[in-house]
Design a protein around this nucleic acid. Structure first.
Length: 767
RNA sequence: UCCGGCGUCGUCUAAUGGCAGGACAGAGGAUUUUGAUUCCUCUUACGAAGGUUCGAAUCCUUCCGUCGGAACCA
């Protein structure tokens, strides 16, 4: 079993399950809007949603988030279902539609109205935005309709439902806070009027809920425990929680955000993908150059390779653009194991073997699979073993495998040079014929002793090229796909048209020649064209007239080497702009903070926090006022700011169960040497959790500090002996492991050793 | 500019105060009837400055950068 992935989401879910949250159950959902095709970015969400559910024994729902009738269609529903299935995920019985909940959304909205948590607003959209919402820096003001009574609102809301108003004439708003720093909380619309036909509910509704109102309720209705979405919904989370709480629905789901996937050399936004299709820059949504699931499928990608890719990308919150080379590496890796090898000539050049009889045809045995590779169950019968290759006097080779004037390092054919024809014979070029200024025919002799490609004299360092018998080769159409864009981040420069960054050579159609077995290839059959790349049969092909898409090229060390030898661009001579980090000076300390610095000798940074944070400030004041507090003011401030603040943030708490006197006691224990600074942090955490006094905690846990070198010495010796490898690394010059050695001793003493004494001992013993 | 998020090799991602690890990309080499595959070796990173600590990528402060948020879209 591959090692199961670990990331911040899985860590959170694991902790929730362990804590018995939701009875230890895990329910996730993948909620696309059926208004477009799924792309590789969705594949990440699908893998995360379904993957997390599966790993924790839960389930994942497929939910069509179809709350906007004007954009959605059943054809998208079908495409989405097919794509999710193809990726290898199964929602079982759990296919849901937001549109099935319209009545429930409505009923809960009536309840909000009755409770005075929502109101009907008559302000037109633009006017609300212009005159009431405010800006990011200024608070908004209340809508004049905000004070309508629940009864009045109820009647109007029912009127909305009954079609008494036109689109945009009225809207149901949440009554929250027009001065919230989070714009999402400034009385957001919950339900709008739309006289439009819905692809599922027809004309039964003329009001439709908005995302922020509907989505959290959908999650709640379905018992979703972990609602995983992308980062742009982060500021919507506050509203998500508001709706759940205001509607008083019994099940409370939790939203968590992660970064969406971006890929180099491609665009991912629905808007841009649509533009590519509509402007016929690509053939359709499933054009093999599109980053859609359908595009990757047609290109010949396997679902396994895409899942592997998503796994390797990982899940985090960083904005990221993954190198498409990683995806290509994943698909090569997968295809290498599952593709039969065949020969196909993309740029045919005639090769005549003078020494071979005119009308003779020989059959040579050639395995479809490299040694050690077994064909999978899905491989056609005729491709499972080996095939007979016809060999005759007139062959075809690839133009790229012949050079009249070969560069240094050339291992292919050239005048006077010998190469191996794969599975065939060694041939030597004797002369060349030209036509119209270019090579038209290569004349060779063959070595009959090398039949099957086996070197007669054990010669190893001979290049190998692929070939076909001219008379037996079949016509095949090959579509060579390359990256759709020439730039790593198309559209990142707003000042230019992103369409200008399209790669004009993203598709090259080649009339190629292939082995006989290719003529009958079933659509979606996959091959490796040896020395060229991985290809898949396209549905456009017909029996006898096959079409192949290049999924991905083989790695090509020779091409890389030659590209490097001939630099394409002159190095830019622009000098690096000086990195003058013009620094804004830190804001000056407030008078209150200054007073703390002069009165108690705390640092400026600490004073700043104590002034700014009311809870900590009050605690500090109480502590220094307590008996013996003033003498310890500096230490108290340090504990408060450097330890307590971080602890409170991590645990998301804003009130403390102990007072200033308790804090003084903790600091005193540290000053007296009863406990170490490390232990002091543990005690502090315990004080936050239980509110017990420091001394009681210390006694209950039997904490003490071992500071005597006599007691610590033997332990240090033992650790040094047991970790000879670490010690060796320290002696080798890695000073960083010093801390690790101290840590190991600390662990031995169960945290009771005095780290300073230990550090001195270690230093002394390793000197 | 307000609120929020995020800053680790070229790229993506680990580390839960104690040896900055992995993958891809790149470089070099071995094997090879695919200049492929496979195998080995190597280069390269904690945004900056302060503070707390025996010890900081990790805790605190300030600054810098970057992304998201002011749709009757999702």
């Amino acid at each position: 079993m591959p090692d199961s992935p670990s990331d911040f989401i899985r860590d959170m879910v694991r902790a929730d399950v362990a804590a018995g949250k939701h009875g230890g159950k895990v329910v996730t959902r993948f909620p696309p809007e059926p208004n477009g095709h799924l792309h590789i970015g969705h594949a990440k969400a699908i893998c995360v949603d379904f993957g997390v559910a599966k790993e924790f024994g839960g389930r994942c729902h497929l939910r069509m988030d179809d709350t906007n009738p004007t954009t959605e269609d059943v054809s998208y529903v079908e495409a989405i279902k097919r794509d999710v299935k193809w990726l290898g995920f199964d929602w079982g019985e759990h296919l849901y539609y937001a549109s099935d909940y319209f009545q429930r959304f409505y009923d809960l909205a009536e309840k909000l109205v009755e409770r005075g948590r929502a109101y009907v607003c008559d302000l037109p959209d633009e006017e609300f935005g212009r005159s009431y919402r405010g800006t990011i820096t200024e608070a908004g003001k209340d809508s004049p309709y905000r004070t309508r009574t629940p009864a009045e609102n109820l009647e109007l809301f029912r009127g909305m439902r009954d079609g008494k108003f036109k689109d945009g004439e009225k809207v149901l708003r949440a009554k929250i806070d027009m001065s919230s720093p989070n714009m999402k909380m400034r009385d957001p619309p919950l339900v709008r009027i739309k006289h439009a036909h819905h692809y599922r509910t027809g004309d039964s509704w003329c009001i439709y809920p908005l995302y922020d109102y509907a989505h959290c309720l959908e999650d709640s209705f379905e018992g979703v425990t972990h609602s995983l979405c992308t980062m742009e919904f982060e500021s919507a989370r506050e509203l998500y929680d508001w709706v759940i709480s205001a509607t008083e629905v019994p099940h409370v789901p939790q939203q968590t955000e992660f970064a969406r996937l971006n890929l180099t050399y491609t665009v991912m936004s629905k808007r841009r993908l649509l533009q590519l299709v509509e402007q016929k820059r690509v053939s359709d949504w499933d054009d093999p150059r599109m980053p859609t699931i359908a595009g990757f499928r047609r290109r010949g990608y396997t679902p396994e390779s895409i899942r592997d890719f998503i796994g390797r990308v990982g899940v985090a919150k960083n904005l990221s653009t993954v190198d498409v080379a990683l995806l290509e590496s994943c698909v090569r890796d997968d295809l290498d194991r599952r593709s039969p090898r065949v020969m196909c000539i993309l740029k045919p050049l005639e090769l005549v073997i003078e020494s071979f009889p005119e009308n003779e045809v020989e059959e040579l045995e050639a395995p479809h699979w490299p040694a050690g590779t077994e064909p999978g169950a899905d491989i056609a019968e005729n491709l499972r073993g080996s095939r007979k290759l016809p060999f005759s006097r007139t062959l075809l080779i690839d133009r790229d495998d012949f050079a009249e004037d070969p560069p240094a390092g050339w291992k292919r054919l050239a005048p006077g040079r010998e190469v191996r024809l794969r599975h065939g014979y060694f041939v030597t070029c004797t002369r060349v014929e030209h036509e119209g200024g270019q090579v038209s025919r290569v004349i060779c002799t063959h070595d009959p002793a090398t039949r099957g490609g086996i070197a007669s004299d054990g010669a190893k360092n001979v290049g190998t090229i692929h070939w076909l018998s001219a008379a037996h080769a079949k016509d095949v159409e090959v579509r060579v796909y390359d990256r759709l864009f020439t730039t790593e981040n198309p559209g990142s420069d707003e000042s230019t048209d992103w369409l200008l960054e399209l790669n004009p050579a993203s598709l090259t159609v080649v009339r190629a020649k292939g082995e006989p077995c290719l003529a009958q290839a079933e659509p979606s059959a996959r091959f490796q064209f040896e020395r060229v790349g991985f290809f898949t049969a396209d549905p456009d092909g017909k029996p006898g007239a096959p079409v192949f898409n290049r999924t991905v090229a083989l790695k090509d060390a020779w091409a890389r080497q030659t590209a490097k030898a001939a630099p394409t661009k002159a190095a830019p001579l622009v000098s690096q702009p000086a990195t003058t980090e013009d620094k804004k000076p830190a804001a000056p300390l407030s008078p209150e903070a200054n007073a703390l610095v002069t009165a108690h000798g705390v640092t400026a940074g600490e004073a700043r926090v104590l002034v700014q944070d009311a809870v900590l400030g009050a605690l500090f004041a109480a502590a220094v006022a307590a008996p013996e507090g003033e003498a310890l003011a500096k230490q108290i401030a340090s504990v408060l700011v450097n330890d307590l603040l971080g602890e409170m943030r991590a645990k998301k708490i804003d009130a403390l169960p102990f007072d200033g006197k308790a804090l003084v006691e903790l600091v005193q224990l540290g000053q007296a040497g009863t406990i170490s600074t490390k232990q002091s942090k543990d005690v502090l955490a315990e004080m936050i959790a239980s509110g017990k006094p420091a001394r009681a905690i210390v006694e209950a846990k039997g904490m003490k500090q071992i500071a005597s070198a006599d007691a610590l010495g033997p332990i240090v010796d033992q650790v040094l002996l047991a970790n000879a490898d670490v010690v060796a690394r320290y002696r080798g010059g890695n000073v960083n492991v010093f801390g690790a050695i101290v840590g190991l001793v600390m662990k031995q003493t169960k945290g009771q050793g005095n780290p300073k004494v230990i550090a001195d001992l270690v230093k002394e013993k390793l000197a």
